[in-house]
Design a protein around this nucleic acid. Structure first.
Length: 494
RNA sequence: GUCCUGUUAGCUCAGCUGGUAGAGCAUUUGACUUUUAAUCAAAGGGUCACAGGUUCGAAUCCUGUACAGGACACCA
């Protein structure tokens, strides 16, 4: 049994007192006529005298956030889901019997109030209470009213307190909902179908990442929590669904950071008979459109960067970009030995499994170019060796018709013309298995033969796209940590 | 996983070169019928994250542990 603080004991005594007085300290249904935002929107425009003449009755409910006793009367600010409003409670108007319940109410208690709108001498729209109803006794005190809850750890561990105290936090999470709604509307209007595919996968495919492993008892078999829905969504293309998307949770068993949570939300979008150029347009439409819809502008401040998210975004081939930043020309045919020498000369570090020119080109890009991509930029033409699910570029088979979107030096989206050649796909999977053997623990160590078989029935030519939703929300809400856009980020046990 | 930094009252924070722990808000009691970080008077509230060590004496110095934040690595 935990030790109760003085304040907790006092609040429990007050709870007992409510019970003894015939109130349920944890309340009951309460009919409201307004929320606080409606009241402000509809009536703040009127003067003190006009409101007095109108005598508007309202009934609201919410949490007491501040309280100022004045003897036989008192003021409080009450907060509901949409905002807050001041209450003015007088003993002579709510009654001798009820007034003490307001007088003894604590910050954090939830109350219902009926009254008449008025404006105070300094012009604040307030409710002059005619009836006061204690609804829920809060047994723990709220954080300090002025500074709120600022401790980052506490804000993550006890998000509910953060949401009570911090308007910014509420706004961020509402923006998250709006962004996801925008994306759904944007795609649904273009004829896309939102679908659901398995989260438990027998083979962890569709991306390069370490999976979580779990076990199904009845089937007595291992499952992986999905690292990407990609291979299932493309099976749907084979099945004849030609414009599909899935927005949902992805799980990757990797390190955590301000930009990584073990579970995060991604959207993947597939369109038959389209290609990567079309998918870039969709990515642009989502990023630019969501920003405009939520912020009313596409000019955003993100940390130190001033970004313009207005479409169209710059599009540049990876090889051209590398040439721009290092003067190295990978359009020239070259051997692995020559490319390795170039990497050494330019201080590009390589690991054992990077045994092809394509890997080295990618390392040049990541180590020398990524950091310069501040304004939204599509980088396309990734080497085939790092793109096992992308279709080859018809003119130059060293590269694929793949792109990634970078904003503020971070990746937001990845898309490509989908590889639908089952024979090529099988070879690429097998190359991944070899890479895994050589020590890339994020390469796929197992070939998904069922997926190959699906492709053998014929998948229409198609474009596909993935967008990290959490990072998009971070961008639009100017949040520095992914934990600021997840209601309940993962933490170690205390 | 490695490195750096942090952890003092319910909350927000002080606490100097080591000498018996402080403030504001919140709480309790009293005053106050247009206040708004309400005000005034008084009171209570602490295993200074945890465990060792150095010292006559540790919130303070040292070591370890836990948790957190940031950077790096990896990715989205």
């Amino acid at each position: 049994m935990e030790q109760l603080t003085e304040q907790q004991l006092v609040r429990r005594q007050k709870m007992e007192h409510l019970s003894e007085s015939g109130f349920d300290p944890f309340g009951h249904k309460f009919e409201r006529t307004h929320n606080t935002a409606q009241i402000i929107a509809d009536y703040d425009q009127y003067s003190k005298e006009e409101l007095e003449a109108m005598a508007v009755p309202v009934t609201v409910a919410g949490r007491i956030m501040t309280k100022r006793g004045k003897g036989k009367a008192g003021f409080a600010h009450m907060q509901d889901a949409e905002g807050k409003i001041q209450l003015y409670v007088r003993k002579d108007e709510v009654g001798e019997e009820r007034y003490p319940f307001f007088d003894k109410a604590d910050l954090g208690d939830i109350v219902g109030v009926s009254g008449i709108l008025f404006k105070t001498n300094v012009g604040e729209l307030s409710i002059r209470a005619k009836a006061y109803e204690p609804l829920v006794k809060a047994l723990r005190p709220l954080p300090e009213k002025y500074h709120g809850l600022t401790d980052i750890e506490e804000r993550y561990r006890r998000r509910y307190v953060d949401l009570i105290m911090n308007e910014e936090s509420r706004k961020t999470f509402k923006a998250r909902v709006q962004i996801m709604n925008f994306i759904r509307n944007y795609l649904n209007e273009q004829g896309y179908l939102e679908v659901e595919t398995p989260i438990l996968h027998p083979i962890a495919g569709g991306a390069a990442a370490r999976p979580f492993v779990t076990h199904h008892n009845a089937l007595d078999m291992e499952f992986f929590l999905r690292i990407a829905p990609e291979l299932y969504l493309k099976r749907l293309l084979v099945g004849g669904f030609d414009k599909v998307y899935e927005m949902g949770r992805i799980f990757r068993n990797e390190g955590m950071s301000p930009r990584h949570n073990p579970e995060f939300t991604m959207i993947e979008i597939y369109a038959a008979f389209e290609d990567y150029q079309y998918m870039m347009n969709i990515a642009e439409g989502i990023v630019s459109g969501a920003t405009q819809a939520i912020l009313g502008t596409t000019d955003v401040q993100y940390g130190e960067y001033e970004l313009s998210l207005a479409a169209p975004f710059k599009r540049i081939h990876m090889v051209d970009l590398i040439q721009e930043h290092t003067n190295v020309d990978f359009w020239q045919p070259m051997s692995v030995e020559e490319a390795t020498v170039l990497a050494k000369e330019h201080g590009v570090e390589l690991q054992d499994h990077m045994y092809t020119v394509g890997h080295i080109i990618n390392e040049f890009f990541e180590q020398k170019c990524e950091e310069h991509l501040i304004q939204p930029t599509f980088v396309y033409g990734h080497p085939v060796e790092i793109s096992p699910l992308s279709k080859l570029n018809p003119e130059d088979g060293r590269f694929t018709d793949r792109f990634e979107l970078f904003i503020g030096a971070r990746e937001y989206s990845n898309g490509f013309t989908e590889l639908n050649d089952p024979i090529d796909q099988k070879q690429r999977f097998e190359a991944q298995v070899e890479e895994a053997r050589l020590g890339n623990d994020e390469a796929n160590g197992e070939v998904d033969y069922d997926y190959i078989e699906a492709l053998e029935y014929g998948m229409p030519p198609a474009g596909g796209l993935g967008v990290g939703i959490d990072r998009l929300v971070m961008l639009i809400t100017n949040s520095t940590s992914i934990r600021d856009v997840l209601f309940f980020p993962h933490m170690r046990h205390r």
